[in-house]
Design a protein around this nucleic acid. Structure first.
Length: 929
RNA sequence: GGGCCUAUAGCUCAGUUGGUUAGAGCGCACGCCUGAUAAGCGUGAGGUCGGUAGUUCGACUCUACCUAGGCCCA
């Protein structure tokens, strides 16, 4: 008889090799064909809901790895919540309007030399966006993300576009929207506004002039100098902006000097004094530093414009730098971003005496009016010289913004724009209060969003672009009045819902508004606004629009979850719009994840060659590996990717997979009917069952608190340590060699089946493909269609046994000591396999000695040796070690059983099977009957 | 330049209110097994906690500064 054939070896169809890139698409097809997402949601319909609102990625290009991380984390949460009984539908969305798509489309047009018209470009933008929605959708689905992929939201859909305008109308009716000037990049050659993304920096030679502003008022007497000879010293590279000067800006925490140079006093920053003195060729031995002041102390000074007879008050600004100039900055609110913001903050006029072609207007004064700013530069210099305000004139080479189309230098120019008033009726304070009521994960997020809201300027809603939702305003062709009303916006919304936002740009659009006339002059000769809404406004409306219009959702929602850039972006604007339009906070919890960075923690750039794509990982290793990479990461910090990190993830994946496989392999002959009652289980088995309940608690705690890596690590360690290297190794002998239906073996299998069931469910949100695959081949009866229709495990108090767990923790310490001793013997070549050992053990500690005696019959199995004998201290040759244990290793008694390979004195006592020990004899007899 | 944040073994992560020789798993090295086999098991070697200076009887844990990195703003 071949005894090997009587051994119960594992059998399973669950392959060791995952071949995820090949196998995952089959699982995807299954999920799709069987509508598993819909079933997962429907199964929980009527239960308490948990709504995560998806932040829309931009529909341009392929899915970036950071976006993949974002979607996978969301998927963890949706699946966990669903399995835990919540009704948790997931409606993904895309942000479609905006500059990147428009620019790509425009360059297509230029390449083809096609005529650029608003309507043609918009049509092409729509197609372009739709194409990338499809591409990205496929890529997200490939990651195993379940959701309403057949019914996503698109910001360019007719419904969405019209709802944007309805929300806008609400803000108009509540008085949030106003019109004002704003300083933006402008190309005088192309006569167009430019976005930041359309600027290229190039070397340019500019003027470099040092000028002085005479002191006009010093109410605090800080200057301490004769007004006639006191000046602020100022440097600039753009003389043509001097006519637009309305202020000077200093930095509050800089130190400033008032220096006396030949009887003339100048104000400048201490940090720049040396540099300035060198530049102006001052003999510093003859310059006296009269006063040292902080920027704050300069607050009430007023200087006089160097050319015109008007004041230039001193303002406090943090943007002032100490790398060039004088630390006293020429401020022209119409000609610079900083200038604009600080000007607005202090209520200065946004003076911009330059027209769209780059020529001075009448506002620049008679002398300059009509001149192009290039000529204007020279004229300004002349005027400065006449006023004795120019101290030095030279030139400088520096990086200067140029237009990406005509490559000529651009300017800042103030143009009329539409704004949302952030301080309207205490709106900002309401937002700050709101932020206090939201749960921010991680907690530091709170500081960021608070700072972002406190510091944000009024929201400029208008863009001089093509691809977006037109602002529903008119201009009177007769008196130039701007006309905006909630009623017009509402009517436009209805029209957009019917025709799409493109209709606004049709040549005959005014026919829909023939009853509207100018409220100022009564004219009916109106034209539609051509500016579009900032795309941030589109996305700021998403929670309102989607969660109120999609079946099953509700607003406000429970969760927003995005990257750290959204503190100033989507988290911020969503709050602005929701609070403004509805006086409601859109979210209860906001989770922020980190950025995906490379091995060194550096941002990934295509040019740096450290760029990792989602495709690479999915095609090479499979989506489950990518998912586990996300699961293993502490994702509220930046998350690193590298080959080594992925290698470790793959190792973890294999370990988990093999553990599932071994569990299933040993359950091939186990059915529901073979299950033992908990009270009948062996002590070791009950201990593992107890540990499994702890595992469940840990995993749940991880998911509940957005700490998926805690869940992952708990599962991984349970598989690797509790199961693979301990329990499953120990229990192998029982599984293989005991009678098929023996109580010992069935006890082990009962626990293995329970643990397998738990593991598959715990893994489902994380390694979804593998969990589904395992579930489909698992030996359970009455299976549901999918793992996602199962309930998430909950710790079963009936399986918990703290006293037993304590005893085993003690036994495990002893086990470690025994294993160390065995290793020593192995190194000394006294021993090979542990089953060829007999261990003699003595414990000094009475309670431990008692514990060992209690478990005496199971110690050999626990240590995986042939025999264990307990001895008293004086019987031991060996010293007692740290744990008050003495351990000796000897050759076992009796003979080695040819079937189970363990040594036993019973070998030879069965004439019909002379090579077998009692246990094996019993097993074969048992199995044969 | 400003705001917020991060920095513990090769990797991913733990380290309670400051208090004994800083932990885990993986990887690695060495070895065992060949009845989980492109598997399984054991033992072991690796950090002085980014750096500096403080506070303290005592700091990975507190403070300041610096360095590197991230997001945003400028």
């Amino acid at each position: 008889m071949k005894y090997k054939d009587t051994i119960h070896l594992p059998r399973t169809e669950f392959p060791m090799r995952a071949k995820l890139p090949q196998r995952e698409p089959e699982t995807l097809a299954f999920w799709n064909d069987e509508k598993i997402y819909q079933r997962m949601i429907q199964a929980r319909k009527g239960n308490q809901d948990y709504i995560l609102h998806d932040g829309p990625p931009y529909s341009n290009g392929h899915v970036h790895i950071g976006t993949a991380l974002n979607k996978v984390v969301k998927d963890f949460i949706i699946k966990y919540k669903s399995m835990d009984g919540y009704f948790s539908p997931y409606v993904p969305g895309w942000d479609n309007h905006g500059l990147p798509i428009e620019n790509n489309v425009l360059s297509e047009f230029r390449k083809k030399k096609a005529e650029i018209t608003r309507l043609a470009v918009r049509k092409r933008c729509r197609e372009y966006a739709a194409r990338f929605v499809d591409i990205q959708k496929r890529e997200f689905v490939r990651l195993g993300v379940l959701g309403e992929w057949d019914n996503p939201y698109l910001t360019m859909s007719l419904k969405y576009e019209s709802e944007i305008l309805r929300i806008f109308a609400r803000l108009v009716s509540k008085g949030y929207i106003y019109r004002d000037l704003r300083s933006i990049y402008w190309c005088p050659h192309c006569e167009t506004a430019l976005a930041d993304a359309e600027i290229e920096y190039k070397e340019k030679t500019s003027h470099s002039i040092w000028i002085r502003f005479p002191l006009l008022a010093d109410p605090d007497g800080v200057f301490d100098a004769d007004k006639e000879n006191a000046y602020a010293l100022v440097w600039t590279t753009t003389p043509w902006t001097i006519p637009a000067n309305l202020a000077l800006t200093v930095k509050p925490d800089f130190e400033y000097y008032v220096v006396d140079k030949d009887g003339e006093c100048y104000l400048l920053a201490r940090a720049l004094y040396e540099q300035v003195a060198r530049e102006l060729e001052w003999d510093t031995s003859r310059v006296e530093i009269k006063k040292r002041l902080t920027g704050t102390e300069l607050a009430n000074l007023v200087f006089r414009h160097p050319i015109f007879d008007r004041p230039a008050p001193v303002l406090q600004g943090v943007f002032v730098t100490a790398d060039q100039g004088t630390g006293v900055v020429h401020t022209a609110p119409g000609h610079g971003e900083d200038d604009f913001l600080i000007g607005k903050k202090h209520g200065l006029e946004i003076l911009c005496p330059v027209d769209k072609r780059g020529c001075f207007t009448d506002e620049a004064g008679e002398r300059f009016a009509g001149l192009h700013i290039d000529k204007g530069n020279d004229e300004v210099l002349k005027a400065l010289i006449e006023k004795d305000a120019l101290l030095k004139q030279s030139s400088v080479n520096h990086q200067y913004p140029h237009c990406w189309r005509c490559h000529k230098p651009v300017i800042y120019r103030a143009t009329p724009q539409w704004f949302l008033n952030v301080d309207h009726q205490g709106h900002r304070q309401k937002a700050i209060d709101a932020v206090n009521k939201v749960r921010w994960v991680p907690e530091e997020s709170y500081e960021r969003i608070k700072a972002a809201i406190e510091g944000r300027p009024d929201w400029c809603l208008s863009r001089q672009r093509f691809w977006g939702v037109g602002i529903p305003a008119f201009y009177c062709n007769d008196c130039d009045e701007a006309i905006l009303s909630a009623e017009i916006a509402e009517r436009t919304a209805d029209l957009v819902e019917r025709y799409s936002a493109d209709f606004w740009f049709e040549p005959d659009v005014m026919k829909h508004y023939d009853d509207i006339s100018c409220p100022k002059c009564g004219s009916k000769n109106l034209r539609p606004e051509q500016d579009i809404l900032d795309v941030w406004f589109d996305s700021s409306c998403s929670s309102l629009i989607v969660c109120r219009n999609w079946e099953g959702l509700r607003w406000p929602v429970e969760l927003f979850l995005e990257g750290p850039d959204q503190h100033r972006g989507w988290f911020n604007v969503s709050l602005m719009t929701s609070l403004g339009a509805e006086d409601t906070i859109p979210y209860g919890t906001v989770v922020t994840h980190g950025w995906v960075v490379d091995q060194e923690g550096k941002a990934m750039h295509k040019s740096l060659g450290n760029y990792v794509t989602t495709d690479e990982i999915v095609d090479k290793y499979g989506a489950d590996v990518l998912r586990l990479w996300v699961a293993a990461a502490e994702y509220t910090r930046d998350v690193r990717v590298s080959d080594e990190i992925l290698d470790r993830v793959i190792d973890a994946y294999r370990k988990i997979r093999n553990t599932l496989r071994f569990l299933m392999g040993n359950l091939a002959d186990f059915t529901e009917a073979d299950k033992l009652a908990t009270s009948e289980l062996g002590a070791l088995d009950r201990y593992v069952l107890h540990e499994a309940q702890k595992l469940i608690d840990n995993v749940r705690e991880g998911f509940d608190n957005f700490i998926s890596h805690k869940a992952f690590q708990a599962i991984y360690q349970f598989c690797g340590v509790t199961l693979s290297s301990f329990y499953l190794d120990v229990v192998k002998d029982t599984l293989y060699t005991r009678g098929r239906d023996s109580k010992n073996r069935r006890s082990v299998q009962t626990v293995m089946a329970e643990v397998l069931d738990i593991l598959i469910r715990l893994l489902a949100p994380l390694a979804s493909f593998t969990a589904e695959e395992a579930y489909r081949v698992s030996p359970f009866k009455d299976k549901k269609k999918s793992v996602f229709l199962l309930d998430f495990p909950r710790a079963n108090p009936a399986f918990e046994d703290r006293d037993l767990a304590y005893e085993f923790s003690q036994l495990l310490v002893v086990r470690d000591e025994v294993l160390k001793k065995l290793e020593i013997e192995r190194s000394a070549e006294n021993l090979k396999g542990s089953i060829d050992a007999r261990v003699t053990l003595a414990a000094k500690d009475t309670s431990l000695a008692n514990l060992l005696r209690k478990y005496q019959s199971q110690l050999a199995e626990l240590f995986i040796v042939s025999q264990v004998q307990l001895a008293s201290a004086d019987e031991m040759q060996d010293e007692f070690g740290e744990n008050n244990l003495a351990i000796e290793v000897h050759k076992p008694n009796g003979e080695k059983c040819v079937r189970c390979w363990l040594w036993s004195e019973s070998v030879g006592s069965h004439p019909d099977h002379p090579g077998l020990c009692d246990k094996c004899y019993e097993a074969i007899t048992y199995d044969q009957t």
